[in-house]
């Protein structure tokens, strides 16, 4: 474990806690894309298939359970909680995320390390995570102004993978081991997708103005 990876994991955890705070505190999920949450739930379930077979550390197991549990709770809340579900922007959250699932699965069938059930689903989860934020970014552009907690949610989610890239660079030099190219390339694509969001987020912070993404 190194500081970049630990920071990355903490940013990831913070992003989920910020989202839970927003939903719990405001009893509203306006501005949140349910489709992105569903994609993330699928990412965690397909990536952590080894949850009960390979024990790596208590930290690793606990974090996997927290990620799966919290994302499942958010998806449940946005669909079934009597108060929260009324604030879901159903008509704005129209990204065809099933295409993303299909494309990533086909890609995983062709591009993987070993042709085994677990490896293919692992590659699928890496590809899917890289694009899972797209419905959320599209929703933010459509809904115009972004409330603070939602902006912070996306910011920490972007920062998490950016720190993982630093972690892979660190491990390359310190452990003479390089990251799997599937993770590396997907991680770069994933972080690049946040680039314009980071730019407007920085502008809003510098000008102390409301975060506004151009349509």
């Amino acid at each position: 474990m190194n500081i970049f990876r630990f920071a990355g994991d903490m940013f990831h955890l913070i992003s989920i806690l910020v989202l839970l705070l927003k939903i719990y505190a405001t009893k509203s999920c306006s501005g949140i894309s349910l489709k992105t949450q569903e994609l993330y739930a699928l990412v965690f379930v397909t990536r952590y298939l080894d949850l009960f077979t390979d024990f790596i550390s208590v930290y690793n197991t606990v974090m996997k359970l927290v990620f799966i549990g919290s994302t499942a709770a958010i998806v449940w809340c946005m669909q079934w909680h009597p108060v929260v579900k009324r604030s879901y922007d159903r008509e704005l959250d129209t990204f065809r995320h099933y295409f993303l699932v299909g494309a990533c699965f086909v890609l995983a069938l062709f591009l993987h390390e070993n042709f085994t059930f677990q490896e293919i689903f692992w590659a699928f989860s890496i590809y899917l995570e890289a694009v899972a934020i797209l419905p959320q970014l599209v929703l933010l552009q459509r809904s115009g102004n972004v409330d603070n907690l939602t902006g912070q949610y996306v910011f920490f989610l972007g920062a998490y993978r950016a720190f993982y890239i630093l972690n892979w660079i660190y491990r390359y030099f310190m452990e003479q081991r390089f990251s799997r190219w599937i993770s590396c390339i997907s991680g770069l694509v994933q972080t690049a997708l946040y680039a314009d969001f980071f730019y407007y987020y920085f502008l809003s912070w510098k000008n102390n103005a409301k975060l506004h993404l151009p349509a």
């Binding site: 994991d9 990831h12 390979d54 690793n60 692992w122 892979w168 081991r177 390089f178």
Partner: peptide, 10 residues
């Protein structure tokens, strides 16, 4: 040659 990283990351 360098080994790839173990699958110990989240």
């Amino acid at each position: 040659c360098f080994q790839t990283l173990p699958k110990d990351e989240l």
